[in-house]
C-alpha cells in the first residue's frame, strides 16, 4: 500500500546497492529528482534499466552509480550523444559499464511481459539484426502453431521501479496523463515501486474513466516533488526545457565541467 514520505526516505527504504532499477518515462515525466537523490545517497553497482537513458542516466553513470545499463536508444534526443555514457563505454570512466542493448520494441514487450508475470516476451523482432549476435538475451523460438520464428527476450522485472506522475489522491492512487510511455508496465513489473508526483489532490478530475490510474496497492512509496521531472516535462504542468538539453552537450563533454555541474546542482541541493 502506498505510503507518502519524503524522497530522501523513499530512496533510503527502497533502493539498495546492487539493485536493478528502472527509472522510466518516455521523454515525458522522467524522474530526475529521484535519480539525483540516488546520486546523493551514493548508491553504486546498480543495474540501470531504461529505454532511453537520457540525461538522467548520463548523470548517474557519470557519478559512478551504475555497473550495467540495459537500454534501447542512448542519445541526447534531438541533440546528439550522451557523453558520459560514451566515456564509460569507450574509456571505462569513471568505471567500466557493462551494456545489454535492445530495440525499443523488445524493451516495450519485455516490460509488458514483466507486468503480466510472464518469464519472457515473444514478438516479431530482431530479424536480420546484428543485435542478436551481441546480446545473448536475444533468442529465437518457433511458434508452436504456425512455425514462425519469433524473437524472445526475458521479461524485465526490476528490483525497483521509479516513475514520475502528475497527481496522487489522498489514498495514494496515481494518475498519469499525456505520453504515458511504459509507466504502467514498469510499476506493475517491479518488486518495489516509488512514484514521485507533482501534487496531491482530493479527487482526480472527472472524465478519467479510461485514464492510466495506478491503484495505491501497486505502489510502495509516493513522494510529492513538484518539478521532479525537470528538465523533461510534465504534461499540464511545465514544458520540456529544450535549451537545457542542448546545453547539456557542452556541460557533459568534459569530465571536470560535468563534475562541477553535479557538485552545484545535485550535491548542492537539499533533497525534497
Amino acid at each position: 500500500m502506498s505510503e507518502f514520505c519524503s524522497l530522501n526516505d523513499a530512496i533510503r527504504r527502497l533502493v539498495r546497492p546492487g539493485d536493478s532499477v528502472a527509472l522510466e518515462g518516455f521523454t515525458h515525466l522522467i524522474p530526475f529528482a529521484a535519480g539525483h537523490e540516488i546520486i546523493r545517497q551514493g548508491l553504486t553497482d546498480l543495474t540501470l534499466i531504461r529505454m532511453t537513458p537520457d540525461l538522467i542516466y548520463d548523470q548517474m553513470i557519470g557519478c559512478g552509480c551504475a555497473k550495467k545499463l540495459v537500454f534501447s536508444w542512448g542519445g541526447n534526443p534531438g541533440v546528439g550523444s550522451l557523453h558520459r555514457l560514451r566515456d564509460a563505454v569507450e574509456r571505462g570512466w569513471p568505471a567500466p559499464l557493462e551494456i545489454e542493448e535492445h530495440s525499443h520494441s523488445a524493451m516495450a514487450h519485455a516490460y509488458a511481459a514483466g507486468a503480466a508475470g510472464m518469464p519472457a516476451a515473444f514478438f516479431r523482432g530482431y530479424r536480420g539484426s546484428d543485435l542478436a549476435k551481441v546480446n545473448p538475451n536475444i533468442r529465437f523460438i518457433e511458434c508452436p502453431f504456425t512455425g514462425e520464428q519469433l524473437a524472445a527476450v526475458p521479461a524485465i522485472r526490476p528490483d525497483v521501479g521509479i516513475v514520475h506522475a502528475q497527481k496522487a489522491d489522498r489514498t495514494g492512487n496515481v494518475l498519469v496523463e499525456g505520453i504515458v510511455g511504459v509507466q504502467k508496465e514498469v510499476v506493475l513489473a517491479s518488486k518495489r515501486v516509488l512514484v514521485t508526483v507533482e501534487e496531491v489532490v482530493e479527487r482526480f478530475p472527472p472524465g478519467a474513466t479510461n485514464a492510466v490510474i495506478l491503484p495505491a496497492w501497486t505502489i510502495d512509496a509516493i513522494a510529492v516533488v513538484p518539478g521532479g521531472a525537470r528538465p523533461s516535462y510534465a504534461h499540464g504542468y511545465y514544458q520540456r526545457d529544450n535549451a537545457f538539453y542542448v546545453a547539456w552537450d557542452a556541460i557533459s563533454r568534459d569530465r571536470d565541467t560535468f563534475r562541477r555541474w553535479i557538485d552545484e546542482h545535485v550535491y548542492g541541493r537539499t533533497p525534497a
Binding site: 542519445g75 550522451l82 555514457l85 530495440s103 520494441s105 539484426s129
Partner: peptide, 9 residues
Amino acid sequence: RLPGSGGAT
C-alpha cells in the same frame, strides 16, 4: 558509440 536502434530494428 552511436545511440543504437531505438525503434528502427
